Amino acid sequence: MQPTVKKTVKTIIHQGNDYLICVKANQKSLYERVQAISADCAPVSVYRSTESTRQRQVERIVEVFDCLAGIAPDWLGLRRLVRVQRQGRRQGKSYDQVSYYISSLATTARQFAIAIQGHWGIENRLHWVKDVVLSEDECPLKQGHAPANWGLIRSWAINLFRLQGHTSITKAQRRVAHDIEALLLLVQ
């Protein structure tokens, strides 16, 4: 996986763009090195935020590091390491998560926090809806073009519901499930 990621990073940089990539434990040496740097070096920028929504409370601490000692030089354009700690309570249960990122951007912790939360917004508004609400992972159609075609249909349905102002895809499904006129109004 590593050579493919590095090739992608090279393409991104050569096209004049920047990257922000989550470093996962399956990238063992990079993950361990970023962990060590964030433990040993002082951050150049820190941003803290708290959020309370529904049955969830979370505090985020985003730290940015410019120390790149020991990171392989073939991560083209690498300028910053980012550590994000999320602590809080979800449905009465405590949690503490730490994520690491590498980036070609040299920006503030606040800007990284906005970018990372923006990514999760996409994850929660599309991928989570497809996986959980529309049961995409449980779909028995696994052969040929069927998975891609059904993926397009699911995305199309989600977008139609969103265009009609629905914030809950579950409620939107229930509203049109047995009402052909309401269903047809979605596509007009």
Rank of each mutant, 00 (worst) to 15 (best):
D137P: 10
E138G: 15
C139M: 11
P140T: 08
P140R: 15
P140E: 02
P140Y: 05
P140K: 11
P140I: 15
K142F: 03
Q143S: 12
G144T: 03
G144R: 08
H145S: 08
A146E: 13
A146C: 03
P147L: 12
P147F: 05
P147S: 05
A148K: 02
A148M: 09
A148N: 02
W150D: 04
W150M: 08
G151L: 00
G151D: 04
L152D: 05
L152W: 03
I153L: 01
R154L: 00
R154T: 01
S155G: 13
W156T: 05
A157M: 08
A157R: 04
A157E: 13
I158D: 05
I158P: 10
I158L: 04
I158T: 02
N159V: 03
N159S: 05
N159W: 00
F161G: 02
F161E: 03
F161L: 12
F161I: 01
R162L: 09
R162M: 01
L163M: 09
L163F: 07
Q164S: 06
Q164G: 01
G165V: 06
G165K: 11
G165H: 05
G165M: 10
G165D: 01
H166K: 11
T167L: 08
T167Q: 07
S168L: 05
S168K: 07
I169D: 09
T170K: 13
T170L: 14
T170A: 14
K171V: 13
K171R: 15
K171H: 15
A172N: 15
A172I: 00
A172F: 02
A172R: 12
A172M: 12
Q173P: 07
Q173E: 07
